[in-house]
Amino acid sequence: MELLYGIFIDPWIQMVSLPDFFVQVLWEGFVSGVLYSLIALGFVLIFKASGVFNFAQGIMVVFAALAMVGIYELGVPGWLSVIIALGIMYALAFSVERFVMRPLVGQDDIILFMATIGLTFILIGGGQAIFGGEPKAMLTSEIGLPSGDYVWEMGGGIVIFQKLDIAATVIAGALIAGLAFFFSYTKIGRALRAVADDHQAAVSVGIGLNQIWVVVWFAAGIVALVTGIMWGAKSDVSFALQIVALKALPVLVLGGFTSIPGAIVGGLIIGIGEKVFEIYWGGLMGGGVESWFAFIIALIFLLFRPQGLFGDKIIERV
């Protein structure tokens, strides 16, 4: 009886009686949801254009952030290290296309997937060799990110919004809007959508796949750098960060592997869902719910809606 009360009644009473705290929980969940969305977005970009599930997306986040901090430590100004880090991500995209994608074109998806696992190890090893393995502090004020917080009074209490989180949300939103605009209104964007739909047909109208792959890997690299900055600013930049990429998997299952809106909505649902569940229901299970909640949601989706919320419907012709 007490257990049923704890599951079905008590959480709602708490939400209503302490609305300021509830809003705080929602906001925290929203902020981590934005970051999940960004990581998932990196996966979706590459998956859509090439059908490759890029296992290395998580490590690309770490690598991009490490590169930026590493360059700053050499005495380069903050804004310039951001630009150089972007250059490095471009070089990475170019090399991946030239040395991984091009020789393996036409191979089975699983072989390309294995190649991205290989890429993961190269980036871990290379990153450690160049930038060192110890955690680094992310640049924040050095690259113009705000610190401090806004306090909002509501319902007899206060809600605290970190300025950094607000900035992260705004930047993520701008990035997504920019990508959407780029895909909708430019020649390369149109080519990209064409390649995502049908490789053979794309080639037949004169779209070179090589160029497109460089573009998507670079776009995924930009997303990785932004994710790395945001995530690094909340904790530290270390190789441990790559495990957050695992959280992108349930987001992808939820949103669909081929849908950019799906990645965004999926990320927000997982981010908010796990925070709310942890705070209001976690106690019943001894806490630590946050680490597995997303995977349970993914499992339920795999059972009942395998294409996700927005993914292409899977129709098998027999």
Partner: peptide, 19 residues
């Protein structure tokens, strides 16, 4: 048939203008 299934007829034809 190798069309861009996610696009409309017009968008498909426009890809022919790509070059």
């Amino acid at each position: 048939i190798a069309l861009f299934k996610g696009m409309s007829t017009l968008q498909n034809v426009m890809t022919g203008r790509q070059l």
